[in-house]
Each structure stands twice: as structure tokens, then as C-alpha cells.
Design a protein around this nucleic acid. Structure first.
Lengths: 146, 146
DNA sequence: GCAATACATTTGCCATAGCAACTATTTCAA
DNA sequence: TTGAAATAGTTGCTATGGCAAATGTATTGC
């Protein structure tokens, strides 16, 4: 008797893992007095590496959609972390910048994030990471076309 | 020169994978005329296997918190998929049941879900699944204590 | 038997997310 | 060069999710 291929409920595993990751980020930010949500951190990280990119670029780089980025930026601008400046030669677009305060916050959060990444990968190897990325990329591309 | 351990941004990979999984579920449900969100499906699946469990049990089984389950059930009850009945001997608790319509919907959705699971794991092996669960469980437990 | 405590669920508040429709601007094409 | 289509961003609507506080019910200790 051969085994049938059994459908695997990987979604639930991914979901619960993501939830606990986010909870740890949130808790750590609060502990060190950084007023950031995990998603705000994601955008900050993009901005720190590419200051002045557009909202669309931010959206693509973070797998968020445009309305979500627009709203997260509303809050970040309100907190003084970021700033919108119009393109000179395309008045539809903004360039998004980290403010001084945004950079300070980034630098305060970064070591916390690095610690969390190390903590999360504890007891796992470089080889495990290769497996992990290969598998997740495969799942992603399995779902990509539709 | 030794390599330093490099912190790994597994969170972003997990996030984007979960997003595309959910998008595929949503799309597939719409295509076959099943009026369910992915999270409603998760609760239905629990209920189908354990009809009559409490909201707390549903929450624990799905890694959702109690308010979220309460609200998802509000919508599911409104759609006629589920039904709340009070415990006889503990009037704080509800037993949650799939209605007739809920079961029909479940049976309509199940083959779609199985197809999606197979699709998502295409070009991946049983051994990959062992890697996957081991790695995700390790990440989870790395973050568990706090 | 009653006060303190625990428990199950709900409500309020806020943030993220997806979709569709809308506005403003730019580009393209006949 | 003007009208159609594309592009960037916003707004409205709905759903999920996390936290804290509130409500109603049960249990426990005295």
C-alpha cells in the first residue's frame, strides 16, 4: 500500500509563528521605550536603507498594498518619524524621508531587532536557513501565478 | 577570519508567504461561491472536528485571542454558519455549533482547501515538511517564554 | 452565606490589511 | 493638442488582531 500525498496544513503553522514573532517585537519595543509597531519598523527599515523612496516603492518592498502604506505613513508622520515631500517633476508622487527623530528611533530599535532575530534563530543553523528560504520561496512561487 | 553569526530576517519571509497563502484562499473561495474569509474557515475547521466547543477552546486551537473569536463568530452567526448555545450548567460559556448551512459550506470549501494545500506544497517533499515544521517549531519555542 | 476571586465573553480603542472607487497628475496617441 | 489611458496616492468599507476594561456568572474561603 502506497501512501497518498497528504495535504499539509502549513498555513496554520506559518500563522502562529508570525503571530509570536510580532508579539515579541512589540513587547521588546515597548520595553526599550521605542514607540513603533512592527509594521512601522518594517517601513522605517526600508527608508533607512533607501531614504526618499516613494510610497509605491515602500509598498512593493514590504509586500503591503498602497492604501496600507499610505495609512501607516499617516501615523508615522503624525509621530514625527517621517516626512512626505513632493517630487519636483511629478506632483503625483511623494518622496518619503526619515526625520531626525525617525533616524534616532531607528538607531534605538535596530539593536533590539538584531537581538530578536538572533533569539528567533537560536538552535537553528545556516543550513536550516537555506532550507527555510528555499521552502518558503517555493510555497510563494506555487501561489504566485494564481 | 570567521563569519559572525548574521541576523536573519525570517519575519519578512514568513509575512509575505502568509499573505500570498491567504490571498489564494480568498480568491479560491470566491471562485467556488463560498462566502468565507480564511479566518472564518479556520474556525469552521475546528468546529467541524469538535462541534460544540467553547469560544475559549476555539481561541486556543486557532491561536486567536478571545475578542477576535467573539467577533468572527458574530459574523459567522449573522451569516447563519454557526450558532451559540449556552451551557446548561455554566451560563458564562457558550457551546458553538455549525448549523446545517455551516456544514454544507464546510463541505463545499474542504476540497478547495485540500487543493490549495497540495498546490502550495508542490515541488516540495515530505522531508521538506519535516524541515519546515522542525524549523518553525523551533522559532516558535525560541520566542515562547519571552 | 458572603466577599473575594476566578472565569467566559463582550466592548472599546487602535493598527493593519484588502478591495474598490475616487482625485489629481502625467503620459500617450491620434 | 486634446482626449484616453496610465500612474500615485487617498478614502470608504469591511475584517482581523491585540490590549485593557467591563459585564455577568461561578467558585472558593472564611
Amino acid at each position: 500500500m502506497k501512501d497518498q500525498p497528504v495535504s499539509k496544513n502549513f498555513g496554520a503553522i506559518i500563522d502562529r509563528t508570525l503571530k509570536i514573532i510580532k508579539a515579541n517585537y512589540q513587547k521588546a519595543f515597548i520595553e526599550v521605550g521605542v514607540d513603533l509597531t512592527t509594521e512601522q519598523w518594517v517601513l522605517m527599515d526600508s527608508l533607512f536603507k533607501n531614504n526618499g523612496i516613494s510610497q509605491n516603492d515602500l509598498a512593493n518592498g514590504s509586500f503591503k498594498n498602497a492604501p496600507t502604506v499610505s495609512r501607516i505613513l499617516d501615523l508615522m508622520c503624525k509621530k514625527g518619524l517621517t516626512e512626505r515631500r513632493r517630487f519636483e517633476n511629478d506632483r503625483r508622487r511623494y518622496k518619503i524621508f526619515l526625520t531626525q527623530f525617525g533616524e534616532e528611533t531607528y538607531k534605538k530599535a535596530l539593536p533590539v531587532v538584531i537581538d530578536l532575530r538572533l533569539k528567533g534563530w537560536k538552535n537553528l543553523s545556516e543550513e536550516d536557513y537555506q532550507h527555510f528560504t528555499r521552502i518558503m520561496d517555493q510555497v510563494f512561487s506555487n501561489f504566485e501565478q494564481g
